[in-house]
Design a protein around this nucleic acid. Structure first.
Lengths: 201, 201
DNA sequence: ACCGCAATTGTGGAATACCGCAAATCGGAT
DNA sequence: ATCCGATTTGCGGTATTCCACAATTGCGGT
């Protein structure tokens, strides 16, 4: 499992140095990036933790960087920091899903607390994503016919009814049903329903 | 069904008059309130639509009013409007669940568009709440024993196992099970699982 | 004391689900 | 040509579910 890490993106070296010292002192893993481009070039989907993103930077702005990350389905919580933010900017960022929006000058303790909360949220969402992936992986092993039978099982239909609808024998439905339960690693239709209903919400 | 209505709370009569005219011209139902206190005194949980809340007002501020509404479990989307908002205020409001945060001066069309979106969200959340209430109402008709049996059914257990765990006969479990399905208005354990799994998410 | 509801149990039978064993067909891949 | 996986089906048997009919017990309210 990748270690949670705070990715701090700011083009001001003095701020990077100060923050790095603060984070390291408190034992919070962090990594500094001089600009959005460098970060985006290095970013990997499996990275965990959070992103601290300065808005006003040379080259790509923090907001543009955020848009790219959304495009890439990056789910890391993003904490914006800015010295010249305005209300519409903050509102827009938060409505797009930013985790927080902090104005400079900020208290270092404050930032680190926000980062910790962002770590927590990321851990929770990663857990949820992992659960989803597990189920998706099992679904992927089903054949087309098995999936078809599964859908009808989830509608609470009897094997007999399923057999009629698919114009196959009941025995065949039983065979598919059995394989569906095996592959999905459940012991009953109820467990299957719970697993998939959770996934679809 | 109550009609969706935009509740506009602002202590500036000129603004109320202007907004009322704009809303009425566009056929958007609205109601004007001169202050948070008056609105809170009249508010009813079944009201639908949204709330447009000025932050700086005589007496109770919009933010305080929002807190009271949260306390009362009011789910109406709240659109803040303010002439002197700052970033931390906007961030705080949005993180508490405000629907939007708009700075004056704003374009009237803009506000009405936001109100329309708020109406949509409220309609969706009311529908979801109604679905939850339906299920809750059915759950409420279950006796303690029936609920107990239901929980074990949802764990995918056989009637025989349930009978053992509750130290009652299988026949009794069957009787409870049958009544549970009747009262919950489902025809199978799968439907029951879907209904309750949805509710619990 | 009487009523109504909840909880409980039994009998017996029909309908379903579940399983191991076995096997035929078919299409795609090597 | 051959192999493999997917789909299909049958047989026979066991386990479970579901239901109608019938009945007992106990508790709280009238």
């Amino acid at each position: 499992m990748t270690q949670a890490c705070a990715h701090i993106i700011d083009d001001d070296e003095a701020i990077r140095d100060a923050l790095q010292w603060q984070f390291r002192t408190r034992g919070v893993p962090c990594r500094m990036w001089p600009g959005a481009e460098a970060f985006l070039a290095a970013w990997q989907p499996e990275w965990r933790g959070c992103i601290v993103l300065d808005i006003r930077m040379e080259g790509m702005s923090g907001l543009e960087c955020f848009d790219v990350l959304i495009e890439r389905n990056c789910t890391l919580p993003v904490i914006f920091i800015t010295g010249h933010g305005d209300v519409p900017m903050a509102v827009s960022a938060l409505k797009k899903g930013a985790f927080d929006f902090i104005e400079k000058p900020f208290n270092d303790n404050d930032l680190i607390e926000h980062v910790q909360r962002a770590f927590d949220r990321d851990a929770a969402s990663q857990q949820a994503a992992a659960d989803r992936d597990t189920v998706e992986a099992r679904l992927a092993t089903l054949t087309a016919r098995e999936r078809e039978v599964m859908e009808l099982i989830l509608e609470g239909k009897f094997n007999k009814v399923i057999a009629d609808e698919l114009s196959i024998s009941m025995r065949t439905v039983e065979a598919h049903r059995s394989r569906v339960f095996d592959k999905m690693q459940v012991r009953s239709a109820v467990e299957l329903a719970q697993m998939l209903t959770t996934l679809r919400n």
